[in-house]
């Protein structure tokens, strides 16, 4: 019986099904913990740094909003988190998480914007799985590649210098740099589209 093709299919199917079940269970258990940790240990310190000295009236972590981005090609719901900082009743700064596919998986980026003068305040890599020593340099805040985003004007979006933009790549890690820039650019588009309406709410 063990050599029958249907039996093989059944065994593999059952094993894969149980594995999937176990994984979705573990994922369901750990996701809230991981999200809370990222919020507290990565986003909060970065936002504190980016918005330092602005004397915002609200706690932008507390007032975070979930932004619905519609469905992706495979019909899965896409959401992101939007952080808004208000001053004098007006939204002056915004930050949001975006991601793009890099060399070894998705690169998740937090981008902070100053809305009045249309400048990027800073960027921070939240998660990545790029090559050690090359693409993984995006997770180092002191890296010139990361530093160059600070103060960049985003009214025309951001793009690599090879595409006529203003961003210099990390040498040896073009794919990671392009993905990172794409994620930041996506954030600029989303901010332009969503923030005014968000402020009206």
């Amino acid at each position: 019986m063990r050599n029958k093709i249907w039996f093989m299919a059944v065994v593999l199917g059952v094993v894969a099904f149980l594995a999937g079940l176990a994984l979705s269970g573990v994922k369901g258990m750990t996701t809230p913990i991981i999200e809370k940790r990222i919020l507290e240990q990565k986003i909060k310190p970065s936002l504190d740094k980016f918005f330092d000295g602005l004397d915002l009236e609200n706690d932008c972590i507390e007032d975070r909003q979930v932004l619905d981005l519609g469905k992706d090609a495979r019909g899965r719901k896409q959401v992101t988190t939007l952080f808004l900082g208000k001053k004098g009743g007006k939204t002056v700064v915004a930050a949001l998480q975006t991601k793009a596919a890099g060399f070894g998986g998705d690169i998740e980026v937090l981008t902070a914007f100053s809305l009045d003068d249309k400048k990027i305040l800073g960027v921070k890599t939240l998660s990545q799985s790029e090559t050690m020593g090359l693409g993984a340099r995006v997770s180092n805040d002191a890296e010139p590649f990361i530093q160059q985003f600070g103060g960049m004007n985003y009214s025309d979006g951001v793009a690599m210098r090879s595409n006529g933009g203003q961003v210099d790549a990390i040498s040896g890690a073009t794919v990671s740099s392009v993905a990172f820039t794409a994620a930041v650019n996506r954030a600029t588009v989303l901010v332009e589209k969503n923030v005014d309406s968000a402020a009206a709410n």
């Binding site: 050599n3 093989m8 065994v11 593999l12 894969a16 750990t30 913990i33 940790r37």
Partner: peptide, 30 residues
């Protein structure tokens, strides 16, 4: 004694990968 010899490697990999992902998620969380 259940796994058919012809698909054993595939089955092993599914089992191993499951535990790796569990490890990864738990480590990320804690």
């Amino acid at each position: 004694n259940v796994i058919p010899p012809k698909v054993r490697i595939a089955t092993f990999i599914v089992i191993i990968a499951t535990f790796v992902v569990i490890t990864e998620l738990v480590m990320k969380a804690y």
